[in-house]
């Protein structure tokens, strides 16, 4: 009797939870899990020009890792990450901490203004920045002309990482500023006050009190941004269209994946490279999680 009661109670407790999760779960399985499993299966199917497709555990991976375009694409993405990530973090934390230190009406306005560019995302943002970086129509055209290549084009393989970084910071910083600012307001004022009483100046408060307390937010931004940076695709694709023939069609790794799938109709290689990309991103995420003790709930 008591057993049945507790079962019923447990069931009753769980049903609403499943109800809430169900719609998302259906979408996740249909458009996330199922394609991922199919992609994994495809990565082992080798398409040959003559004859039937064959199964191989390694062939597609060998093919993509030895592709002459991969080192170039990987280097481009690496340079982009090295430029973009530190600037993004610096901008986000400087602005969020400044707003937190001086909670004035001006700070609220700044928070809003920095968020606005983030409202224009994806292809639309790329198109907007395409204009910004076309010397003939850009408001800073005269400045851009100082850096044009021998044929008068500003966009080239050399300037591309910088262009994407500027764009990435402008479009992405606003959202993170709001998140980090929210985290900062969550810090108990008692803690900050006692630090002040102990004689900590503003810089020491930030470095020893505030930043350690929002450590998991830093980790979260790093994980999401690293994955985002590794998978950069829409921006280089759209912006390169503004300078036909000046920027590689496979500038980023994800564009190389796309090239396999569409230009070469080789789904096996596309899946293999996508999986390798996933492995790298997961490894980096694990590294960041362990280094920042992301999931530790104890001593913070």
């Amino acid at each position: 009797m008591t057993i049945t009661n507790s079962r019923v109670r447990r069931l009753r407790r769980r049903t609403p939870a499943w109800g809430f999760i169900a719609p998302y779960l259906v979408l996740l399985v249909l458009f996330g899990v199922a394609p991922a499993i199919y992609g994994l299966y495809q990565a082992f199917i080798v398409t040959s020009v003559v004859g039937d497709p064959s199964f191989s555990l390694v062939q597609n991976f060998i093919d993509v890792l030895s592709d002459y375009r991969l080192p170039g694409s990987a280097l481009n993405v690496a340079v982009y990450l090295v430029i973009w990530l530190p600037i993004l973090l610096l901008v986000v934390f400087t602005l969020a901490l400044a707003m937190d230190a001086k909670r004035t009406r001006f700070a609220t306005l700044t928070r809003f203004v920095t968020y606005v560019p983030g409202a224009v995302t994806g292809a639309a943002a790329a198109l907007l920045w395409l204009f910004m970086f076309s010397p003939n129509v850009s408001p800073i055209g005269g400045f851009l002309r100082l850096f044009t290549t021998h044929n008068g084009s500003f966009l080239s393989d050399n300037t591309f990482a910088l262009v994407l970084s500027v764009m990435g910071v402008a479009a992405g910083a606003g959202g993170w500023i709001v998140v980090v600012y929210g985290a900062l307001t969550g810090i108990s004022s008692d803690v900050v006050e006692s630090a002040k009483l102990d004689g900590a100046n503003a810089w020491q408060t930030v470095w020893h009190i505030k930043l350690p307390l929002i450590r998991s937010y830093i980790a979260f931004i790093l994980i999401v941004s690293t994955a985002q940076g590794f998978q950069v695709f829409v921006e280089p694709t759209v912006i390169a269209a503004g300078a036909p023939g000046q920027v590689s069609r496979t500038w980023s790794i994800n564009q190389l994946v796309y090239s396999y799938a569409t230009e070469q109709s080789n789904y096996g290689r596309a899946s293999a490279l996508a999986i390798l990309l996933l492995v790298v991103c997961v490894a980096l995420a694990v590294f960041i999680i362990t280094k920042t003790k992301f999931y530790s709930t104890g001593d913070r």
């Binding site: 003939n136 036909p244 000046q246």
Partner: peptide, 13 residues
């Protein structure tokens, strides 16, 4: 000989 694409707006100009 230009190295711009034929339909690059810098070249069509």
């Amino acid at each position: 000989l230009s190295t711009l694409d034929l339909f690059d707006k810098n070249y069509t100009a």
